[in-house]
Every structure is written in C-alpha cells, then in structure tokens.
C-alpha cells in the first residue's frame, strides 16, 4: 500500500469537497495534484533531511579529512563520493574545504571526487526524486552521480595536476580542529532540527513554485509536446539540456518538479537526468569561487571532465531505457 494514500485522500477532499472543483476537469485535477505533491514533498523533506543532518553531525569535515587522508586512490575516490552524499555544503565552503583537504594530504583526485559528489548528490535532490519519481529513478540518479564523482576524481588524480593548483594554497598552514566540544545526543537532535527547518524555509517556496508550474504543465501542455522536439532522436538535446542547467544552480528544489511534468510530456529520462545533474553539479558561483584556488587550466579540465561525464550519462540512459 502507498503510505501517501491518506495525503491523496486529503488532497482530493480539499479539491473536490472544500473547493468544490470537478474531479474530471483539468483545473480540478491540477489543484489536487498540486496539494498532494506539496504535502508529500514537505513531509519527505522534513523526515529525510532531519535524518541525514543527524548522521552528518557525526561527520564533521575534520573527521572526513582524516578518513580520506593517504587512502589508496580508487578506494579514496569511492569513499569521498559516498561521504559526499550525506554532507552537502554551501558552495561558499568549497574553497576552505578544498584547501583544508589537500593541505592535510588528501590526494587531489580524491578531493575532486568529494567536490563533485557533495553538491550533485544532495539531500534535497534525492528527496524530490524519491517523492516525484519513485525510488528506482532516485537510485539511478544517486548511483550515476557517485559514479561520475568517482571517475572524475580518479581521472584527475591520474593526470598529475598539482602544479595547476594556485601556489599560495600549498603555503597555508591549516590550524587545529575548530569546534572541539563534545555534543550529546539531545544537542545533535536539536541542531538537526534547526538545520532542517532553516533548509525547508529556504527551499520550500521553490518547491511550491516548481510543483505549481508542474501541475500547470501536467494539466494544460499537450501530450508528446516534447518528444517531437527533444526526443531520443535529437542528439543535441542532451548537451543542450546540460547547457540550460548551468545558470539554474542551487534551484534543484524548483527544477525537479517541473522536470517530472516534462518527462510526462515526452522528455526522455536520460536527457532529464543530465539536466538535473547539470543544475546541481555545474554551478556557476561554485566555479567562480573555485577559481580562487585552481589555475584556469585546472578549472577548465575539471569542468570538461564533469560535463563529459554528465552528457555521457544522459546518452547512456536515453539508450538503455
């Protein structure tokens, strides 16, 4: 049984009994769809983000650094990508994290695996994918994201790019651990709760806008609108989707609900995945911030490898699904 069926009943009751809309009209359907999605995503956001941020309280950056220091390359890349799933960071932390990692002996390639995975496979994206597409597509997204992160970091590690990191980075002495105070269980719970509520306050408005636009597309856009224009036959569709995703950074919350409706209207899954990955991983402000520590050539190599990985994933899933 679907655990969200009570939410569906509530949405139907509100739409058809309280607002007195007709169930078989486009407007009635769209309103019920909007209410159902908003409540369901809100609940999922709360529970999953609370859980993830609680786990994260046991994984401060100092600990991650210790786990990743002097690991064998491939194993280190995998660990870094996996840790990246539960530890998203504000893109403004990218530079201090980068310097802190490489300074204390985390291999450069392993650091890049973390830098790719942390924003791309983030909790908000995972919640929305789970809520709107089901666990299979959420799993495909997470597994391909981790794979791209592992490979990007591994390839970059093999390329010996140390000389392309800005020289001053190697001169900084990183001080001892920041917060040393032990946290008890209750404090962790309280902090996770504050974090969750702050995050929801930040993203929920975008979720509502996204779900609203999605409901509109669901109700009013003609079937197969997109399959004719950007169907699997169009080889430019995946790169184009990636390009469009770049300026939409940090708005996974608003973008994913719209993507769901676009898939219903014929957008191929691979193209949709590539688009969502580009929104989360290829963020313009993060690249600008990274320019402070990476020489332009290294930044370009990073962007190219990551972009190729995302485009390849798009083609792969268009081809197998």
């Amino acid at each position: 049984m679907d655990i969200f069926s009570p939410v569906q009943k509530l949405a139907d009751w509100l739409s058809y009994s309280v607002f007195r809309l007709q169930p078989d009209t486009i407007l009635g359907g769209a309103v019920s769809y909007f209410i159902y999605d908003s409540i369901k995503i809100g609940l999922l956001l709360f529970f999953i983000i609370f859980f993830v941020s609680f786990i994260r309280s046991y994984l401060p950056p100092e600990k991650i650094k210790k786990i990743l220091t002097n690991k064998f390359e491939f194993l280190g890349n995998i660990l870094a990508a996996l840790i990246g799933i539960v530890t998203p960071f504000c893109s403004c932390s990218a530079v201090p994290l980068f310097i802190g990692f490489v300074e204390s002996g985390v291999p450069l390639g392993v650091t890049f695996s973390y830098l790719v995975s942390a924003p791309m496979v983030n909790e908000v994206a995972a919640v929305l994918l789970l809520g709107m597409f089901g666990w299979k597509i959420a799993a495909i997204y997470i597994i391909s994201g981790v794979t791209i992160a592992v490979l990007t970091g591994f390839v970059m590690g093999k390329m010996n790019l140390h000389h392309l990191v800005e020289d001053y980075v190697w001169k900084i002495k990183v001080g001892d651990t920041a917060e040393k105070n032990k946290k008890d269980f209750k404090k962790r719970l309280a902090e996770s709760y504050t974090y969750t509520m702050n995050l929801i306050k930040g993203v929920y408005p975008y979720v509502l806008i996204g779900v609203g636009l999605g409901a509109f597309i669901h109700g009013y856009a003609p079937e197969n609108l997109l399959s004719r224009i950007v169907g699997k036959g169009n080889l430019f569709a995946v790169p184009l989707a990636v390009l469009i995703g770049v300026p939409l950074y940090s708005n996974a919350a608003g973008v994913i609900p719209i993507v769901r409706s676009l898939i219903e209207k014929g957008l191929p899954l691979g193209t949709a995945l590539a688009f969502m990955m580009s929104v989360t991983a290829l963020s313009l402000p993060e690249m600008i911030i990274l320019k402070k520590v990476l020489k332009p050539k290294l930044l370009a190599i990073y962007i190219i490898i990551l972009t190729v990985g995302i485009i390849f994933t798009g083609f792969l899933f268009n081809w197998i699904m």
Partner: peptide, 15 residues
C-alpha cells in the same frame, strides 16, 4: 579572509 579561516582550523563557512 579564507586564509584566516583556515588558520583557525575552520573548513566550513559560515563560521
């Protein structure tokens, strides 16, 4: 000042 942050051992902003 990121350098100052790192000298204090801070790796995640804001702090």
């Amino acid at each position: 000042d990121i350098q100052k942050m790192l000298e204090m051992g801070i790796m995640q902003s804001p702090a």
